[in-house]
Nucleic acid binder design. Structure first.
Lengths: 110, 110
DNA sequence: CGTTGATACCTCGATTGTCTATATATAGAC
DNA sequence: GTCTATATATAGACAATCGAGGTATCAACG
Protein backbone atom coordinates (compact mmCIF):
# COMPACT_ATOMS: atom_id res chain seq x y z
CA UNK A 1 0.00 0.00 0.00
CA UNK A 2 2.85 2.35 0.76
CA UNK A 3 4.32 4.13 -2.21
CA UNK A 4 6.19 7.18 -1.01
CA UNK A 5 9.28 7.46 1.19
CA UNK A 6 7.28 9.03 3.96
CA UNK A 7 5.21 5.87 4.17
CA UNK A 8 8.20 3.62 4.67
CA UNK A 9 9.79 6.10 6.98
CA UNK A 10 6.95 6.94 9.26
CA UNK A 11 5.81 3.34 9.24
CA UNK A 12 9.00 1.92 10.67
CA UNK A 13 7.83 2.02 14.27
CA UNK A 14 4.59 0.25 13.37
CA UNK A 15 6.48 -2.41 11.45
CA UNK A 16 8.78 -3.05 14.40
CA UNK A 17 5.79 -3.32 16.72
CA UNK A 18 4.18 -5.87 14.42
CA UNK A 19 7.41 -7.84 14.36
CA UNK A 20 7.71 -7.72 18.14
CA UNK A 21 4.22 -9.12 18.59
CA UNK A 22 5.02 -12.21 16.54
CA UNK A 23 6.77 -13.35 19.71
CA UNK A 24 3.38 -13.53 21.37
CA UNK A 25 0.96 -11.17 23.13
CA UNK A 26 2.73 -8.33 24.89
CA UNK A 27 1.89 -5.08 26.61
CA UNK A 28 3.01 -1.76 25.19
CA UNK A 29 5.73 -1.03 27.67
CA UNK A 30 7.30 -4.43 27.05
CA UNK A 31 7.10 -3.95 23.29
CA UNK A 32 8.99 -0.67 23.61
CA UNK A 33 11.70 -2.16 25.80
CA UNK A 34 12.05 -5.16 23.52
CA UNK A 35 12.51 -3.03 20.40
CA UNK A 36 15.12 -0.95 22.14
CA UNK A 37 16.98 -4.04 23.27
CA UNK A 38 16.72 -5.79 19.92
CA UNK A 39 18.08 -2.77 18.06
CA UNK A 40 20.87 -2.24 20.58
CA UNK A 41 19.34 1.05 21.75
CA UNK A 42 19.60 2.32 18.18
CA UNK A 43 15.86 2.74 18.05
CA UNK A 44 14.54 4.40 21.22
CA UNK A 45 10.78 4.11 21.55
CA UNK A 46 9.23 7.14 23.24
CA UNK A 47 5.91 6.65 24.94
CA UNK A 48 4.49 9.62 23.10
CA UNK A 49 5.08 7.67 19.88
CA UNK A 50 4.34 4.19 21.17
CA UNK A 51 0.79 4.54 22.44
CA UNK A 52 -0.55 6.58 19.52
CA UNK A 53 1.00 3.98 17.20
CA UNK A 54 -0.72 1.15 19.05
CA UNK A 55 -4.09 2.94 18.77
CA UNK A 56 -3.63 3.51 15.06
CA UNK A 57 -2.80 -0.14 14.60
CA UNK A 58 -5.77 -1.25 16.64
CA UNK A 59 -8.03 0.96 14.55
CA UNK A 60 -6.57 -0.54 11.39
CA UNK A 61 -7.24 -4.01 12.75
CA UNK A 62 -3.61 -5.11 12.88
CA UNK A 63 -3.65 -5.75 16.62
CA UNK A 64 -6.24 -6.50 19.27
CA UNK A 65 -6.01 -5.33 22.86
CA UNK A 66 -7.21 -6.89 26.06
CA UNK A 67 -6.64 -5.91 29.67
CA UNK A 68 -4.61 -8.42 31.61
CA UNK A 69 -1.63 -8.75 33.88
CA UNK A 70 2.05 -8.26 33.14
CA UNK A 71 4.83 -10.70 34.07
CA UNK A 72 5.36 -8.63 37.19
CA UNK A 73 1.75 -8.94 38.22
CA UNK A 74 0.67 -5.47 37.17
CA UNK A 75 -2.36 -4.30 35.29
CA UNK A 76 -1.41 -4.12 31.62
CA UNK A 77 -3.04 -3.95 28.22
CA UNK A 78 -1.98 -6.98 26.23
CA UNK A 79 -1.71 -6.62 22.46
CA UNK A 80 -2.10 -9.54 20.12
CA UNK A 81 -1.33 -9.71 16.42
CA UNK A 82 -4.32 -10.33 14.16
CA UNK A 83 -4.30 -12.16 10.86
CA UNK A 84 -4.44 -8.80 9.09
CA UNK A 85 -1.51 -7.63 11.18
CA UNK A 86 0.53 -10.64 10.18
CA UNK A 87 -0.20 -9.96 6.51
CA UNK A 88 0.70 -6.32 6.95
CA UNK A 89 3.99 -7.32 8.52
CA UNK A 90 4.82 -9.42 5.47
CA UNK A 91 4.10 -6.50 3.14
CA UNK A 92 5.96 -4.02 5.35
CA UNK A 93 8.99 -6.23 5.64
CA UNK A 94 9.26 -6.59 1.90
CA UNK A 95 8.78 -2.85 1.37
CA UNK A 96 11.38 -2.04 4.02
CA UNK A 97 13.94 -4.36 2.49
CA UNK A 98 13.46 -2.77 -0.93
CA UNK A 99 13.64 0.74 0.47
CA UNK A 100 16.57 0.17 2.84
CA UNK A 101 18.66 -1.75 0.36
CA UNK A 102 18.10 0.93 -2.28
CA UNK A 103 19.26 3.68 0.07
CA UNK A 104 22.16 1.61 1.36
CA UNK A 105 23.24 0.78 -2.18
CA UNK A 106 23.29 4.44 -3.18
CA UNK A 107 25.17 5.52 -0.06
CA UNK A 108 27.73 2.74 -0.51
CA UNK A 109 28.41 3.79 -4.07
CA UNK A 110 31.93 5.00 -4.71
CA UNK B 1 24.10 14.64 15.94
CA UNK B 2 20.98 12.65 15.25
CA UNK B 3 19.77 10.52 18.12
CA UNK B 4 16.12 9.73 17.54
CA UNK B 5 14.44 7.70 14.80
CA UNK B 6 12.75 10.76 13.42
CA UNK B 7 16.15 12.24 12.69
CA UNK B 8 17.30 9.29 10.64
CA UNK B 9 13.96 9.01 8.97
CA UNK B 10 13.30 12.58 8.04
CA UNK B 11 16.93 13.06 7.12
CA UNK B 12 17.06 10.40 4.45
CA UNK B 13 16.28 12.72 1.57
CA UNK B 14 18.96 15.16 2.70
CA UNK B 15 21.49 12.37 3.00
CA UNK B 16 20.72 11.16 -0.51
CA UNK B 17 21.06 14.70 -1.84
CA UNK B 18 24.46 15.05 -0.17
CA UNK B 19 25.53 11.75 -1.68
CA UNK B 20 24.33 12.78 -5.12
CA UNK B 21 26.33 15.97 -5.01
CA UNK B 22 29.58 14.08 -4.43
CA UNK B 23 29.35 13.39 -8.17
CA UNK B 24 29.90 17.08 -8.79
CA UNK B 25 27.82 20.28 -8.87
CA UNK B 26 24.28 19.65 -10.00
CA UNK B 27 20.98 21.48 -10.21
CA UNK B 28 17.99 20.40 -8.13
CA UNK B 29 16.01 18.83 -10.90
CA UNK B 30 18.95 16.69 -11.92
CA UNK B 31 19.55 15.65 -8.32
CA UNK B 32 15.95 14.47 -8.03
CA UNK B 33 16.09 12.49 -11.27
CA UNK B 34 19.43 10.94 -10.31
CA UNK B 35 18.18 9.76 -6.92
CA UNK B 36 15.12 8.22 -8.53
CA UNK B 37 17.23 6.45 -11.11
CA UNK B 38 19.85 5.28 -8.63
CA UNK B 39 17.21 3.82 -6.31
CA UNK B 40 15.36 2.18 -9.18
CA UNK B 41 12.35 4.45 -8.69
CA UNK B 42 12.07 3.17 -5.13
CA UNK B 43 12.63 6.67 -3.82
CA UNK B 44 10.55 9.21 -5.74
CA UNK B 45 11.64 12.79 -5.09
CA UNK B 46 8.75 15.23 -5.17
CA UNK B 47 9.52 18.84 -5.95
CA UNK B 48 7.64 19.97 -2.89
CA UNK B 49 10.15 18.03 -0.81
CA UNK B 50 13.23 18.65 -2.91
CA UNK B 51 13.44 22.43 -2.95
CA UNK B 52 12.63 22.95 0.74
CA UNK B 53 15.30 20.34 1.52
CA UNK B 54 17.87 22.17 -0.60
CA UNK B 55 17.08 25.44 1.19
CA UNK B 56 17.45 23.83 4.59
CA UNK B 57 20.77 22.39 3.54
CA UNK B 58 21.98 25.68 2.16
CA UNK B 59 21.04 27.39 5.42
CA UNK B 60 22.94 24.73 7.34
CA UNK B 61 25.96 25.33 5.14
CA UNK B 62 26.06 21.85 3.64
CA UNK B 63 25.65 23.09 0.09
CA UNK B 64 26.27 26.30 -1.83
CA UNK B 65 24.13 27.49 -4.70
CA UNK B 66 25.00 29.47 -7.78
CA UNK B 67 22.94 30.33 -10.83
CA UNK B 68 24.23 28.79 -13.99
CA UNK B 69 23.21 26.76 -16.96
CA UNK B 70 22.06 23.14 -17.19
CA UNK B 71 23.39 20.55 -19.64
CA UNK B 72 20.46 21.44 -21.87
CA UNK B 73 21.37 25.09 -21.89
CA UNK B 74 18.69 26.22 -19.46
CA UNK B 75 18.84 28.53 -16.51
CA UNK B 76 19.45 26.40 -13.43
CA UNK B 77 20.67 26.77 -9.89
CA UNK B 78 23.77 24.68 -9.41
CA UNK B 79 24.42 23.18 -6.01
CA UNK B 80 27.87 22.32 -4.77
CA UNK B 81 28.83 20.30 -1.72
CA UNK B 82 30.76 22.21 0.94
CA UNK B 83 33.35 20.80 3.29
CA UNK B 84 30.72 20.80 6.04
CA UNK B 85 28.35 18.96 3.74
CA UNK B 86 30.94 16.32 3.06
CA UNK B 87 31.49 15.82 6.76
CA UNK B 88 27.77 15.65 7.35
CA UNK B 89 27.46 12.99 4.68
CA UNK B 90 30.05 10.89 6.47
CA UNK B 91 28.14 11.15 9.75
CA UNK B 92 24.79 10.54 8.08
CA UNK B 93 26.03 7.51 6.21
CA UNK B 94 27.35 5.95 9.38
CA UNK B 95 24.12 6.73 11.25
CA UNK B 96 22.02 5.33 8.42
CA UNK B 97 23.99 2.08 8.29
CA UNK B 98 23.57 1.61 12.03
CA UNK B 99 19.87 2.39 11.89
CA UNK B 100 19.03 0.40 8.79
CA UNK B 101 21.02 -2.66 9.78
CA UNK B 102 19.41 -2.65 13.22
CA UNK B 103 15.91 -2.55 11.72
CA UNK B 104 16.77 -5.10 9.05
CA UNK B 105 18.29 -7.43 11.65
CA UNK B 106 15.15 -7.29 13.81
CA UNK B 107 12.81 -7.86 10.86
CA UNK B 108 14.92 -10.78 9.62
CA UNK B 109 14.77 -12.46 13.01
CA UNK B 110 12.96 -15.77 13.03
C1' DC C 1 8.17 6.47 56.96
C1' DG C 2 9.24 8.98 53.02
C1' DT C 3 11.47 8.93 48.78
C1' DT C 4 13.32 7.16 44.79
C1' DG C 5 13.14 4.29 40.66
C1' DA C 6 10.96 1.02 37.79
C1' DT C 7 6.75 -0.47 35.81
C1' DA C 8 2.61 0.73 33.04
C1' DC C 9 -0.67 3.63 30.84
C1' DC C 10 -2.31 8.08 28.73
C1' DT C 11 -2.47 12.67 26.28
C1' DC C 12 -1.53 17.41 24.76
C1' DG C 13 0.95 20.79 22.04
C1' DA C 14 4.75 21.85 19.25
C1' DT C 15 7.66 20.61 15.73
C1' DT C 16 8.96 19.13 11.28
C1' DG C 17 9.21 17.08 6.85
C1' DT C 18 6.55 15.38 3.12
C1' DC C 19 2.79 15.75 -0.08
C1' DT C 20 -0.45 17.75 -3.38
C1' DA C 21 -1.39 21.38 -6.01
C1' DT C 22 -0.41 25.45 -8.22
C1' DA C 23 2.42 28.87 -10.61
C1' DT C 24 5.92 30.57 -13.84
C1' DA C 25 9.01 30.05 -17.88
C1' DT C 26 11.50 28.02 -21.84
C1' DA C 27 12.35 24.71 -25.56
C1' DG C 28 11.55 21.05 -28.71
C1' DA C 29 8.37 17.94 -31.01
C1' DC C 30 4.29 17.02 -33.60
C1' DG D 1 -0.93 25.63 -31.62
C1' DT D 2 -0.48 22.28 -28.11
C1' DC D 3 1.78 18.89 -25.59
C1' DT D 4 5.75 17.19 -23.03
C1' DA D 5 10.00 17.80 -20.61
C1' DT D 6 12.95 20.81 -18.25
C1' DA D 7 13.62 23.87 -14.17
C1' DT D 8 12.47 26.57 -10.07
C1' DA D 9 9.32 28.11 -6.43
C1' DT D 10 5.71 28.25 -2.80
C1' DA D 11 1.36 27.63 -0.18
C1' DG D 12 -1.56 24.76 2.58
C1' DA D 13 -2.78 20.32 4.39
C1' DC D 14 -1.34 16.30 6.63
C1' DA D 15 0.79 12.96 9.68
C1' DA D 16 4.04 11.00 12.82
C1' DT D 17 7.32 11.93 16.22
C1' DC D 18 8.87 14.22 20.34
C1' DG D 19 9.02 16.33 24.84
C1' DA D 20 6.74 16.98 28.81
C1' DG D 21 3.34 16.35 31.75
C1' DG D 22 0.00 13.41 34.38
C1' DT D 23 -1.86 9.03 36.96
C1' DA D 24 -1.01 4.83 39.59
C1' DT D 25 1.29 0.76 41.75
C1' DC D 26 5.05 -1.56 43.98
C1' DA D 27 9.74 -2.71 45.73
C1' DA D 28 13.91 -1.15 47.65
C1' DC D 29 16.48 1.92 50.40
C1' DG D 30 17.84 4.72 54.10
Amino acid sequence: MSRSPVDYLHGTLETLILKTLTRGPMHGYAVARWIEGATGETFPVEEGSLYPALYRMEKKGWVEAEWGVSELGRRAKLYRLTRAGRQQLARDTEAWQAFASAVTRVLARV
